[in-house]
Nucleic acid binder design. Structure first.
Lengths: 242, 242
DNA sequence: ACGATACGCGAACACTGTTCGCATTGCAAC
DNA sequence: GTTGCAATGCGAACAGTGTTCGCGTATCGT
């Protein structure tokens, strides 16, 4: 059982985070102020520093929370075990579609948190290699690329037409990912990561443009439009066109 | 001939913008401070207010400059007349490839300015409908979509396979764009804007991910990789796969 | 030559992040 | 049960920020 102080501390941290999240959501990340949070929860500004070393530390906590939350949402939508275990969905490409839709849904439901993750980074900042943000990123990548690998293993994806492979030597990072994916589909070709990267960029580009409001002129039903784009990409991917 | 004061004013405003741009480029947009600019050019903080009403006004000026600069770079690379006139390039799809490469090159050469444009927007901000940012955006769109239309007119692009069109009624915005594009290619189908939007999102997604440093694990030669993705998309587009 | 306008500056106000020293509270060991 | 210690909260303060105001001075149109 946690001691009284420990429970109080957890409650206070939660209160601080809730107030901070509300400030970020309603006013944007730059408007997050220590003093504002302190006012919202009825505490002195100096008191916050018993829980966070700096304003940046608070923002970082919000960011990692958002990241893991997004990774959870995408994993859940794909039927992908939260611990990394594979449920072997019957239709990997359908699960892939669901994952991308979940990605968009999450981003549009909480644009401030999404932009906290993928918006303007602070120059020179390098995420710690084993930090939570990198972990969450890899979890999303594992779902997206893993489902693609399962589809390949099921024979649902044709090899790429054209001859892009020769022109693109894969990096060590791609080799690592490829090695892991080959646990799911041993005969994955070298250009597989590159091909799926295009799909991921399409997802991210569409969502980013929509969240930042640069697509509203073209979209009457953005959700249906996004799904249509994803279906088209999956079909092209399936046929080896991309 | 401009009067002495007018020349001095132009010089001063240029000096302010240069100092501000340097601050943004080296430290990021949040670190742009009126007082810092004032220090850099040897002026009192209050003096800056003779030239800009507020810090936001200065930032907005930097943003519009960046936007028109980017639009210039893309237009120039595509051989597209700066005033909107068409040079009717011999190979529209090659020009399209060049335009997207120019987009990436500009973004990576000046990441701070790129993120000023496409990074986290301030919540609730709505760009003025006839403002310079909208104009620059439309200029880039005109190049990208216009080249696609020219390729269609030249018979280089196949109709979309699949049946996405029926599921997606085009919006008024798409209708407007379509009407303009049909000056270049009268027989453009209704789903043409949607198809090219996918290409644009792919471009933007790849560049955004690369600029924010979320793709370095996968890219040994990012420029070649980007070009490869663009060539693959153009080929798939040409064949009607996307 | 003169009145109006633009310019630049110092001082001030309200706000921010952050630190310091001092009380007070809860816990844990003697 | 008392005593010591660590955790907690607060008020005051410092440096920095954006912005405004009032005052001189330089430049302009007339």
């Amino acid at each position: 059982m946690a001691t009284r102080r420990e429970r109080a501390r957890l409650a206070t941290v939660a209160e601080i985070k809730a107030a901070a999240l509300q400030q970020v959501a309603s006013l944007g990340a730059p408007e997050l102020t220590i003093r504002g949070v302190a006012r919202a929860i009825g505490m002195s500004p100096a008191g916050i520093y018993r829980y966070y070393d700096s304003r940046d530390a608070l923002l970082t906590d919000l960011l990692t929370d958002a990241y893991t939350d997004l990774a959870d949402a995408v994993s859940a939508a794909a039927g992908w075990g939260p611990a990394g275990g594979v449920d072997a969905p019957t239709d990997p490409l359908a699960a892939l579609l669901a994952a991308t839709v979940a990605y968009r849904d999450w981003a549009l439901a909480q644009p401030a948190r999404f932009l906290l993750i993928f918006g303007t980074p602070v120059p020179g900042y390098q995420a710690p290699p084993q930090g939570p943000t990198v972990t969450a990123n890899q979890r999303m990548g594992a779902v997206f690329f893993g489902l693609g690998a399962l589809a390949w293993a099921a024979g649902q994806v044709a090899p790429a037409s054209g001859h892009r492979t020769a022109a693109e030597p894969t990096t060590e990072g791609q080799q690592d990912v490829l090695a892991q994916l080959r646990d799911l589909a041993p005969d994955l070709p070298d250009d597989f990561v590159t091909r799926m990267l295009g799909g991921w960029a399409l997802v991210h580009g569409l969502v980013t443009l929509e969240v930042t409001g640069q697509l509203h002129w073209a979209l009457s039903d953005p959700g249906a439009s996004f799904t249509g784009h994803m279906q088209a990409w999956i079909e092209a991917f399936r046929q080896g066109a991309v």
